[in-house]
Design a protein around this nucleic acid. Structure first.
Lengths: 139, 139
DNA sequence: ACTTTTAGTGTGTATATGCACACAAAGCTC
DNA sequence: GAGCTTTGTGTGCATATACACACTAAAAGT
């Protein structure tokens, strides 16, 4: 075991990074009563209006059942409205006016968080980092 | 809002990457009744025997209260034994024989998971990726 | 000695994550 | 049209994550 270098553990490092990044965005998101995960969901619903549950999960590379709960959460908060599709199985989602409003309040904070990271890493490294994260997501 | 490129969102990408990596390691860890997070904890306790709660949390870049629950979990499973420090406040942790045994069973799986990632990214990119993740953790 | 501060720990609550499973509707096969 | 498969959805359970808060004991200040 001593020959194993756990400081190179991808799992550890990926989770640590996600925790650190989440904490950073969380500090800003809390000011307007949101969590980082909810922001992601709102952005995706805004971008892909009328997408179904499974489509949204696909976009977010998230387990469908995880998304079900996350969407239910923002729906309870009145940020998202759902609508049944004809066949009676699927649901479609849209931001409510309240959801649009909150998203607009969140945007400046998001831009600041992005800028903070870019500052920390440097512009070149920033783009490389995004690319690296995308590669890891394809795993 | 339309000028914002959310595909460059560090939060999204970091969380997606962590989810993908976690899923990959999880598939292997489940075979021996472990979760990826528990593996991390066991490795750290093995490496830093007799460390206290706060020290372990520091090593794992994890919130202390999160670690309390994670350690309690592996302790209930009989993988870790705790011991009070003299002053009656701190606790120290050590792997139990059962914990050592399970860790040894986990190591080949961990090595395979690491190799999978290295294969996916390529050796150079692998090291860059680790470095990038570490930089993000410092945020 | 008493008070205050500091350090270390644990709990309540809310959120996030995903596997196993169950359910429901549509389509297909015969 | 009865049975099977496929597709889309939601729940039960276990785990993970962290902020706000409370508790306890040592240490420091007066």
């Amino acid at each position: 075991m001593e020959e194993d270098d756990f400081s190179l553990c991808v799992l550890d490092n990926a989770r640590k990074a996600a925790r650190a990044v989440s904490r950073h965005y969380d500090k800003l998101a809390r000011r307007i009563g949101m969590t980082p995960g909810q922001f992601s969901v709102l952005v995706t619903i805004h971008k892909y209006a009328d997408a179904t549950t499974a489509e949204l999960a696909e976009r977010l590379s998230m387990d469908r059942t995880t998304l079900v709960r996350n969407v239910a959460l923002v729906e309870r908060k009145g940020l998202v409205a759902s609508q049944l599709v004809q066949d009676g199985r699927s649901k479609q989602y849209r931001l409510s006016p309240k959801g649009e409003e909150l998203l607009n309040k969140a945007l400046p904070l998001w831009r600041r968080a992005q800028a903070d990271v870019k500052n920390h890493l440097g512009s070149d490294e920033f783009l490389r980092a995004i690319d690296t994260l995308k590669r890891l997501s394809e795993l």
